[in-house]
Design a protein around this nucleic acid. Structure first.
Length: 986
RNA sequence: GCGUGGGUAGCCAAGCCCGGUCAAAGGCGAGGGACUCAAGAUCCCUUCCCGAAGGGGUUCCCAGGUUCGAAUCCUGGCCCACGCACCA
């Protein structure tokens, strides 16, 4: 397991000091204590409270085939931060968490443990499971016993603000949930959202089972594609059958290829007799065709025959070749040398091989007369791309497989997307290849000159070493996500949602359009049995689309256990859920049938009405294309509009030290591992700081280290006694002003789930402001400011570092828990632009002086500042006024300025300054203009001369530029302008 | 190919939606200083190039364009990551 150096660095760091610090602030001890307190006081247990605004956050339940890593941790925490934040805003917050066990992977993994497959053992070992424990995982039930409990423990360790009374697992192992899924499917079926159809899947002929990506030795990501079978009649009425993915090239056919060495069969397919290889007959049988094999023959037997080619309806010869892959297609290939490099090379090989021609008694004249026929125009290519690429790549013969594969890919891609059919292509002349492909196929099929056959898009090999084929499953149940009217409702739902980030909207809309009907049942795997057809088990993405509604009533159904043992809840029927979620039916009847108090049901109904819909569902971006979209679809099918989801959040894939986190790459960081290394609050801060938006968040261990130290610092600061003053100073107003702005920006960022930005505004910037404030206060802050700072900072940190802030909250005399306190308000009246402009001016002056010192290399003994003369201030004031009305014009400014007393005497200077000012003010913003003016710069600098002197290590004097008694050896005073004093250093 | 997100100083990363306050926040790394016997920690300063006066020059993937003005808007291109399905 590779991981950055956090631990090592921690260990080598300043041993004595470290020990002292750890002793002083024991974050882990604090965490354990507060987690216990939350649990004891049921702080996060949520129940409906009529009249109180509510907030319902969820995260898709994780799949229980292992410990959860920080990828899930991140998605979870980003929702949890919001839950804690909303609670501090006064919402009654529900944040439940369930666990997903439906589907194949647990079964597959258990089987592989049983078979002692080393890779699977390593996976478990890497999770930290001891060798002697591993054999237990041969039983799938063991996984379900271990991992949900472990995940609860991990999340509690992170300080999760979850109402654990509502947790559950899926599948029939938990009867009330099982009943809920059955109810959901009945509903969908009744609404005609579930349909039956055929469905092609990648299939292992040996296992007689579909092969998902996880079960493949080779060919991850390959999918079924449909080939066109072209039928070439022989004079006796039998057909040679060739498979192609390029039916649009039929107009360029010149001959047919068979492998003379390969065996073929004659088979009765439907009412016809087809000649093809045996493998193809087996595939066709799996694809719903009635096939019976009648006799066998060798390829050589077919060479030299003439067959009639479909579409062009012309006789072409059958010729020998060696390039045919017998595992793909039918073993017979139609030849289009103009566009298929294989065909061209095979033709060239044959034409130049008199011995071969003679061997098969082929007429050399006729074979040599075969020329490629140009059929497709593609920008950037000549008339014969197949020929062109072979020559360009220098392909020698049919044996040059690697180059031929490359050539095929290149020609196919550009031809498909950009090619247009030539005049010799009959009715398809001028049509784009992309379109013509389908049209031609349809026509040939309708004329019985063609048929279809499925193949994997690339080679797929099952774990059992068998090469996969495509099976067309009959009677497959689908969720009809392809239905346009259903799509329309999903779009409607999206339109009214709050999405974080906003760019998610476009993506979701796209996904909704892109989705096709979804096969929602399996023959294998854990899950709810399809209520009306017990051959099928409901598939795992389909049983988890609206279960957020289940959370609202789960506390009663589960009875405190992940697998419910509540007697009446083990007898639930559709009528129960109809009443819960729709309020329909007769409560009395339901109650008496279930053997439960009617009031219990009525209370539960109120829980649902109170909490639903969800306000936020957050996840990693991998679920957008399936779960997040399915969730919307199903809500629109089952629930009325007011119960559709209100908000989604999506984050990127978590990166660890800049690399993608994934089990297969061994770059995984399990929550429990992280918790061994860092305190929970540190991990939470690291996650919050990882990054916002759809960018992949990066878990930065250097940041964790810094956060660790800073949290301890904050604890010391917040709980320490501070030497404070009681008299007010100007800088106090500045600090409060900046503090309020920080609160404002933090609130906005929190609402948008931009947690990194929230930390920046609410923590880093606020800390920086405090340190400036301390410098400006000679380390004697005003007591009210210290108190305020501690309270505001602690509360802003609370959603991220709940343990430490509860400790601080408690020690500084707060009531209850910090999560129950009110989030800092923005006090508009404390926002003080004037106080801010003082500091801006002071800092920019400081910067200017430092710039001068840097450039000149002077070590200053004495520094003089000259504030702008009165007349410049007057001109400036006029200019500000004029700017409010529109673009500043120099002539108008001059006119007004010269009207003032004493201006005419220095008209030249006024003109120069007016021009300069016009330039400056052109770009100034309105509120910046407002800030100037009211400030008396001379007194301001005069009051702060001491501070500047300390900062710069020199004596600082302040003069008015128009003071005749000023000390000004270098005649710098002339440069002074409002908001920019002149400077002299020596 | 389609879709989504992105390409900013040595590295990480903000800004881009809403053009001027941008040589461009913050962090890391690096250099200098204060404190200290010293180290660590902490604090201060510097960190595109030039400059002995607060200035100038060249920059935000590339090429064009719009604009008085572009990291930010538009067009075209190049490059990177992820997804493209029946399954978590």
């Amino acid at each position: 397991m590779t991981r950055p150096t956090g631990r090592a660095r921690g260990a080598t760091r300043r041993p004595r000091e470290a020990a002292r610090r750890e002793q002083e602030v024991d974050l882990r001890e604090i965490e354990t204590r507060w987690q216990a307190a939350w649990e004891k006081d049921r702080v996060h247990v949520a129940r409906a409270e009529a009249g109180k605004p509510k907030w319902f956050s969820t995260v898709p339940y994780p799949y229980m085939n292992g410990y959860q890593h920080l990828g899930f941790g991140t998605s979870f925490l980003r929702a949890e931060f919001q839950s804690r934040y909303r609670r501090m805003l006064g919402f009654n917050v529900l944040h439940p968490q369930g666990f997903h066990c439906t589907g194949l992977p647990i079964l597959g993994a258990a089987k592989r443990v049983a078979e002692r497959e080393p890779k699977q053992w390593d996976i478990l070992r890497n999770m930290g499971i001891p060798d002697r424990e591993i054999p237990k995982f041969a039983d799938p039930m063991h996984w379900i016993d271990v991992f949900p409990a472990a995940t609860v423990q991990d999340l509690k360790g992170l300080g999760a603000a979850v109402d654990w009374t509502r947790s559950f697992i899926t599948t029939p192992l938990n009867p009330p949930y099982d009943a809920f899924v059955r109810w959901q499917f009945h509903h969908l079926k009744d609404g005609d959202f579930i349909r039956k159809d055929k469905h092609p899947v990648i299939w292992c002929p040996k296992d007689q089972a579909p092969i998902g990506d996880h079960d493949r030795l080779e060919g991850e990501g390959e999918t079924p594609v449909e080939y066109t079978l072209l039928k070439f009649p022989l004079p006796d009425g039998r057909f040679l059958v060739a498979a192609t993915i390029r039916p649009e090239t039929v107009y360029g056919q010149t001959n047919l290829w068979v492998d003379p060495e390969a065996p073929y069969v004659v088979a009765k397919v439907g009412h016809e007799r087809w000649i093809l290889n045996e493998a193809a007959t087996k595939k066709l049988m799996e694809q719903g065709k009635i096939v019976s094999q009648e006799s066998t023959l060798r390829g050589a037997d077919l060479i030299g025959e003439d067959v009639v080619a479909p579409a062009i309806n012309r006789a072409i010869p059958v010729l020998p070749s060696t390039f045919i892959d017998q595992g793909r297609g039918t073993g017979i290939v139609t030849s289009v040398p103009s566009d298929a490099p294989d065909d061209f090379v095979a033709l060239r090989d044959l034409q130049g091989d008199p011995a071969l021609l003679a061997k098969f008694h082929l007429d050399p004249e006729r074979v040599r007369a075969i020329k490629p026929v140009p059929i497709i125009r593609t920008p950037g290519w000549g008339p014969l791309p197949g020929v062109e690429i072979v020559e360009r790549l220098g392909i020698r013969n049919q044996g040059d497989r690697e180059k031929l594969e490359q050539a095929k890919g290149e020609v196919y891609k550009s031809g498909f997307y950009r090619g247009v059919l030539n005049e010799n292509c009959g009715p398809y002349a001028g049509m784009r290849v992309e379109v013509a492909k389908e049209e031609i196929r349809k026509e040939l099929t309708s004329k019985h000159q063609a048929d279809g056959m499925w193949e994997p898009s690339g080679e797929v090999v099952c774990r059992c070493m068998t090469r996969a084929i495509v099976k067309v499953v009959e009677d497959q149940w689908f969720l009809a996500y392809g239905d346009p009217s259903w799509k329309a409702k999903a779009h409607e739902a999206i339109a009214s949602m709050a999405l974080h980030p906003e760019s998610l909207r476009k993506w979701l809309d796209y996904v909704v359009d892109w989705l096709r009907d979804w096969p929602c049942t399996h023959h294998r795997g854990l899950g709810t049995i399809l209520p009306w057809d017990s051959d099928w088990v409901i598939e795992s993405l389909s049983d988890s689309t609206i279960y957020m509604a289940y959370y609202t009533i789960a506390h009663a159904l589960q009875g405190g256990s992940l697998r419910s043992a509540v007697p009446w809840a083990n007898r639930l029927d559709d009528a129960f859920f109809d009443y819960m979620f729709f309020g329909t039916g007769d409560v009395r009847a339901v109650a008496s049938r279930l053997g439960v108090e009617r009031k219990v049901l009525e209370d539960l109904r109120r829980e649902f009405q109170y909490w639903y819909p969800i306000d936020l569902r957050n996840t990693g971006k991998d679920l957008v294309q399936n779960h997040m979209a399915f969730c919307l679809f199903t809500h629109t099918a089952v629930f009325p509009r007011e119960h559709w989801p209100r908000g989604y959040g999506v984050n990127g894939y978590v990166r660890l030290a800049g690399r993608k986190m994934s089990k297969s790459r061994g770059n995984t960081w399990y929550i429990r591992e992280a918790l061994k290394e860092w305190p929970a609050d540190v991990i939470r801060l690291m996650v919050a700081n990882g990054g916002d938006g759809l960018d992949d968040p990066n878990l930065d261990v250097d940041f964790a280290e810094a956060a660790d130290a800073r949290l301890r610092d904050w604890f010391r600061f917040a709980t320490a006694k501070h030497a404070a003053r009681r008299n007010r100073r100007g800088i106090d107003a500045w600090f409060l002003s900046v503090l309020n702005r920080a609160v404002q920006k933090t609130r906005t960022s929190m609402e948008e789930m931009n947690y990194k930005a929230a930390l920046r505004h609410g923590y880093f910037d606020l800390q920086t402001a405090w340190s400036w404030y301390m410098r400006r206060s000679e380390n004697r802050p005003h007591e009210a400011c210290v108190r305020r700072f501690i309270e505001v900072q602690t509360k802003i940190l609370a959603p991220f570092a709940p343990h430490l802030t509860d400790e601080i909250w408690h020690r500084t005399g707060g009531d209850g828990y910090v999560v129950q306190s009110e989030y800092p308000e923005i006090k508009e009246e404390e926002i003080d632009p004037k106080a801010e402009v003082v500091e801006i001016l002071l800092q920019s002056t400081l910067d200017d002086i430092r710039e001068i010192l840097k450039v000149t290399g002077i070590v200053p003994k004495r520094i003089a500042l000259y504030t702008a003369p009165e007349w410049k201030a007057q001109v400036h004031a006029i200019a500000r006024e004029l700017s409010k009305e529109g673009p500043l014009r120099v002539n108008v400014l001059m006119e007004k300025a010269l009207a003032l007393r004493g201006m005419r005497e220095r008209a030249k200077d006024v003109a120069a300054y007016a021009k300069q000012l016009a330039e400056e003010l052109k770009h100034a913003r309105a509120d910046d203009l407002e800030r100037f003016g009211a400030l008396d710069e001379f007194s301001m600098f005069h009051e702060n001369a001491q501070f500047l002197g300390t900062e710069l290590g020199a004596k600082v004097d302040v003069y008015r530029a128009d003071d005749p008694h000023r000390w000004d050896p270098a005649k710098k005073a002339d440069r002074a302008t409002p908001a920019r004093p002149a400077i002299y250093v020596e």
